[in-house]
Structure formats: structure tokens, C-alpha cells
Design a protein around this nucleic acid. Structure first.
Lengths: 282, 282
DNA sequence: CGAGTACTTGAAGTCCGTCAACCTTCGTGG
DNA sequence: CCACGAAGGTTGACGGACTTCAAGTACTCG
């Protein structure tokens, strides 16, 4: 079951490095990878132009690696969207991250020599395969490279810390709003519109990621829509009031920005007002 | 303020490596550090016996490093207990971890070249200072060493994932109970008793770490005590029913183990019963 | 076109946060 | 020596922000 869920049969992977530039960009140079990772492509990287890395194509729903699978390689996302999940004893999924272009996958497998999480494609994906041994030997030759993997892991750690902080102390509204802003910034950094975009994940997955139920996510999005912060229609999101959304970050956990039981228009005013208060107290 | 909160004035740090074995174990060899980190001390490590690392002593309350401080060195705890915290915009502390013997501190500073969290001693501590540059050059010479830093960071990442999962989906009871079990296992691994130990942190700090309030932590500990799982007296903890505690891991978030509105004795029975149910459903 | 999945919305209940009172311990200085 | 305050801890009452349960709609894909 695990084996068959893996795409890209090893036959394809183990093909000799013959025609390096195949149809559909099947191979990438070290310099390409450095660009993807936003590492300043040093002389070292360009020097090692003989090293190439294979790509893997995934379709939505396919798994890149599963929990417990032997750790060999790390992955860098070239295009597409994925999720990484933890499966607990009861079989429940816990979404850990939504990797996209430029993100590194699989580093949590280094320590135990097997992956500790599961990576699933949410859309068609193109992923670069980097054998860990190749990478670390390259790192030894070119210190900047090594430093940048440390950097990637360090950044990942900081991101997790921020996540823990959020899960520990923010309200549902604040979590959803931070999620939207973070997503927007990611899209913007990738050259897409930061104002209008499509969610690639379900409410369920968002909820799991944020430590909420899917109903709460849905309700919160609807509330933001009603207030006019955003426009939601299924998975299409339009951020209408980015400025306010961004300033709303880091709210204290439970504020009484409820009272929205009354008339709709009235609740809108109260909500805006309550949020303004939050901004002051923060 | 940042500067003065640091202990061990630079005068001490920059002393030439003259009398390497000072009073009070002020210096450690690479092999010592490897032992501490549970790395099989390879030939390489013993070979580089000329490399020594300085220690720093902290008293309870002192800070090892603060947020924003320039990143130079990583630390390995030799003895004592600390906490690492994040400070958000509102000035609230969020506890991220409780490092103890063998744990590595400061790796979150690699990426941004400044520490992203703050480390505070909870007791008298002895910490080994490892200049990051020294470490990475050693890593280049001895690949196993390099691999083990990757391993440390990878493990840290996995730990954070587990943490996120817990914060996202477990009830207060389950969190406290997992916290106790984890602490117990840490103590046992260090050679202390895993059954009886003293908490080194306040209820407040535990709560922050677990995403709960100090009142909830206190109430939950009291409840466990009343049921007979543990014995609590201030910061002294005795685990009386380890087996049950361990099997209680990973409960679904909100189970109806309430109904404890009624008489005390009755509520106790119901509570135990409800927990038994949980074990079955999990 | 039916089945399955994703999403929305409502109603009810509860877990846990907030507020508050009280106790103990500990260190300081009158 | 005891008064005093500060800090940590316990416990109770109350309410609200979520979760849970449930029903209904829209959509995709054989």
C-alpha cells in the first residue's frame, strides 16, 4: 500500500544521466536549485555545473513520501502545492505545513533515517530530488551551501515556533486571518497576485493546520466576508482590506468581538470597532 | 540591558586556552560534547582532542541569550534546567521548550544571524559554548559531526511537529499528562528517577508551554492527584500510575469525561470510567 | 444522474479562560 | 522578631468561544 502510493517508479529515477535536458524540464542544475531556494548562487554553485538533479512529477492526491519510509533524499518544490501531515495513533491527520515553490521537504527524516511525516500533493506538482548524501558532500566542498541548509532548517524551526505560539494563544479569527495574510505573502513572493488567489486545500485541512474544526474555519471565513474584509466563494479568496487584515495580527486569544447575534449591519459596526480596540490594546 | 543580562563577561570568554582543566570543569573536549549529545564518539572526535570548548555558569533567572542578539555560538546544556521563550508584540512570553542536559540551544539563530528566542535559566546551569564557525569547520573535517548537527536540528523539527499536533488537537488533560510523561522519560534518560521528581518551572510556564492557563494546569494536576494517578505537592510530583498515564496519550480533543458536577466521590468514579472509555475508543 | 465529497449554516453543549478570593512561602527591612 | 509585600499556587463561579451534532446545498466524477 505504501509502495504503490509512491509515484515515479524507480525505473524512471534510476535512468542514467544521459540526455540531461529532457522534455518537460526533468533535470535541474545546482544553480537552478540555489535560485529556487533564494540562495545567492555563489561561484561554487556555478562551478559544480556537472551536478544535476532529477525531477518528479506528482498529480493531486499522490504521496511523495510516507511516515516510516526510509530516508534517502530531500525534496525541493519547483511548482505546485502540497501538504505535510502527521498521522496519530487514532489515524487522525494533522496538517503540519503547506509547502509550495521553493520549500524544502523531508528534512525531518535526517535524524531517524526515516521520514517522520507524510507529503501529499494538493495539485499537480514538480519536485526536485536531492539525494542527501550528494547534498552533504557538496556542502563539504562549498561551505556556503552547507550553511544554507542549516539556514533552511533554522528558518523552519523559527516558523514552527511561531506556529506553536499561534496555536497556544490566538483566537480562531486571528488564526484564520494570519493564515490568509501568510498565504497572500507567499503568493506575492512567487509573483502571483497577493490579493486574489485560490485555496488549494479543503476547510478540513485548513482547520487541522490551524488547530480548529472545519466548521469554525468556514464560519470565520463567512464572517470576514460579511464584514467586507474578504470575498469568499468556495476556494476563491479575494482580500478586500489587506491593510486591516495585516494589522489584526497577534490578537489576544479571547476578545469579546462577538455580540453579532443582533442585526447584521449592526454587528458589522461592532465588529470593526472591537477590532479597532484590539489594535490599541495590542 | 541586553548586554548586561548576559553572564560571563567577555573577559573570561576570551582568555587564552592556557590551563585547560580549570577548577569546576570549565572546559570540555569535543569528545565530552559528543557524549553529551549521545553521538557515538568517532575516531574523528577523539582525534581532534586539541579543540576545547568553554563553559558558562548561570544562576536561576539569568539569560543566556536574548531575542535579536547577534548569533555567534550555539550552546549545549551540561547540567541544569532552562526555558526558551518567544516574546510577542504585546510583550507576552510564550514558552517554547524546557532544555536540559544534552539539549542544544540557539540553533534558531543560524538563519537570521540573530537569536529568534530567549533562553533563561530556571536553576543553576552549566552550559558549553560552541562557536558556530568552529563547529561548522569541524563538521567539514569530520562528516559524522556535521551529520549529527543536521540530526539534532531534524529531531528538534520533529519535536516541534509533535508539539503542534498536540496543541492543535488534544484536551487540557491529555496535554498535562503528556507533559508529565515526557518529563518523566527525560529524567529517567538522565539517570534520575522517572517516578518522583521536582518541576523546575512555574504553573504559568507550564501553561504557556502547553497552550493553557496556569489555573487550568493547576486544576488538572489537582484532578490527577484526586484520582490517584499522581501525587502533587507544589512542585514535587510523584507518578503513581505510570502505566495508565502512558496509555492515555493522544486522546481525542473533547471527550465527555465531565459529569463531575455531582458528588465528589461519584465524580471520581465517573472520571476514571470515562478515561477507560477513551482508551478503548483511541 | 446518483454517489460522494466539499461547504455552509443552525442549535446545543462544554471545555477552558477570565475574574476573584484566599493561602502559603520567602526574603527584606523596620 | 514579626510585619509586610511579592510571587506562586489552589479553588470557585461564570460566561463565552469553540466543538459537536445535524441538516441542507452545491459540486464533481464515475
Amino acid at each position: 500500500m505504501f509502495a504503490e502510493s509512491r509515484i515515479a517508479p524507480s525505473v524512471t529515477i534510476n535512468q542514467p544521466v544521459a540526455g540531461r535536458q529532457r522534455a518537460g524540464q526533468l533535470w535541474s542544475s545546482l544553480a537552478d536549485v540555489c535560485n529556487l531556494l533564494q540562495i545567492t548562487p555563489t561561484a561554487a554553485a556555478t562551478a559544480a555545473s556537472d551536478v544535476v538533479f532529477q525531477h518528479i512529477q506528482l498529480k493531486a492526491g499522490q504521496r511523495l513520501f510516507t511516515i516510516g519510509q526510509a530516508f534517502d533524499v530531500i525534496y525541493v518544490v519547483n511548482s505546485g502545492f502540497l501538504k505535510t501531515v502527521l498521522i496519530d495513533d487514532a489515524g487522525n491527520e494533522q496538517v503540519l505545513s503547506f509547502p509550495m515553490k521553493g520549500d524544502v521537504l523531508g528534512v525531518d527524516g535526517i535524524h531517524a533515517h526515516c521520514y517522520m511525516s507524510e507529503a501529499v500533493a494538493l495539485s499537480s506538482c514538480d519536485v526536485i530530488v536531492i539525494p542527501f548524501k550528494v547534498f552533504s558532500s557538496l556542502g563539504r566542498k562549498y561551505p556556503e551551501l552547507e550553511l544554507s541548509l542549516y539556514g533552511v532548517m533554522s528558518r523552519e524551526l523559527a516558523r514552527e515556533h511561531a506556529m506553536a505560539s499561534m496555536l497556544g494563544s490566538l483566537s480562531a479569527e486571528a488564526r484564520v486571518e494570519r493564515f490568509l495574510v501568510a498565504l497572500s505573502e507567499r503568493y506575492a513572493a512567487m509573483g502571483y497576485s497577493g490579493k486574489e488567489f485560490n485555496l488549494r486545500m479543503t476547510r478540513q485541512e485548513i482547520g487541522s493546520y490551524l488547530g480548529l474544526t472545519l466548521e469554525t474555519v468556514s464560519r470565520t471565513l463567512s464572517a470576514f466576508d460579511r464584514i467586507g474584509y474578504i470575498a469568499v466563494e468556495g476556494r476563491s479568496i479575494i482580500l478586500k482590506d489587506m491593510a486591516t487584515l495585516k494589522t489584526l495580527r497577534r490578537l489576544p486569544p479571547s476578545q469579546s468581538r462577538s455580540k453579532e447575534v443582533a442585526a447584521v449591519k449592526k454587528s458589522i459596526n461592532e465588529l470593526s470597532f472591537a477590532n479597532a480596540e484590539d489594535r490599541l490594546t495590542a
